[in-house]
Design a protein around this nucleic acid. Structure first.
Lengths: 144, 144
DNA sequence: CTGATACTGAGACTCAGTATCAAAAAGAAA
DNA sequence: TTTCTTTTTGATACTGAGTCTCAGTATCAG
């Protein structure tokens, strides 16, 4: 059993929740894919294997995975929410290509610390942030 | 006639579009309010004066105002889109209180330039970005 | 004034996400 | 393994933001 799965089981147990086959499937699929995925995409793919899987379960589970920090939520170029497996990954933000949708991760301790300083100055307690840069990736630079 | 209205008329004309009473009302209202407003809020308020105003017109017009840089779009704490009049305002980002919804503007040339450098390094052509910090504002710091 | 064209509003539609609730599954304890 | 409580599930209906369509209407250049 992977590290992530153990964390998930522990989290679930510690909160008095229950471990289920559906939750396990969703976690497994998200981890395996290694990409950003929309709830809808997860739903449709897993539904092919298990035609009884419900939409709501997927949404609920992804939210749960976000809560226990195994997944993180990212807004894509069209304003929709997607999730990515985030265990062991340090915090990072995204550049999103408006043409092909490809995302490139970036992180900048210097931006983070400037951000923290600005917030402090305005009396703001930071809980989380979202820093998304939209534009064209190198591959799409000169295309229509 | 305000500067903004002139810009709007010119933009509309230059694109071969037409100036209408509805568009004017929506622009006027957005400018007067000076706040971030959801399309729905604009719609309901203006609808009271003009019961024939259509939802779609509001959405279309706000998008048009965004195109000609008279308004800018900001995601609120619940992930919904809002607009604010942005003419003459330099670019800025937002800190959003997750308790009361209040937004505080900030701008940091240093963050902007770090961002530009990172993008350049990854071969990314920046078109726009969104940097939103969520947390608690000073007034809500100690509340439930 | 007139005609070409853009715009409008009504309403149907889409799509992401949520609420509800009865039936099913989990898992602790016996 | 059986029982019992609690959580979870999936079907379904719903919500709310935003889009599409289209017939009728307004704008404005000539």
């Amino acid at each position: 059993m992977t590290e992530e799965k153990k964390i998930f089981r522990d989290y679930v147990k510690s909160r008095g929740l229950k471990h289920t086959a559906q939750r396990d499937e969703i976690l497994t699929y998200l981890l395996k894919s290694g990409r950003h995925m929309s709830p809808e995409e997860v739903f449709h793919t897993l539904r092919e294997r298990d035609p009884k899987l419900g939409r709501a379960t997927v949404f609920r589970t992804l939210k749960l995975l976000e809560e226990c920090r195994l997944a993180s939520r990212v807004t894509d170029a069209n304003g929709h929410q997607t999730y990515e497996g985030s265990y062991g990954k340090p915090h990072h933000d995204h550049m999103i290509c408006v043409r092909c949708g490809r995302t490139v991760e970036f992180s900048s301790p210097r931006i983070e610390s400037l951000q923290a300083r600005i917030a402090r100055r305005k009396g703001f307690q930071v809980q989380w942030h979202r820093h998304e840069i939209f534009g064209r990736c190198s591959r799409c630079e000169n295309k229509i």
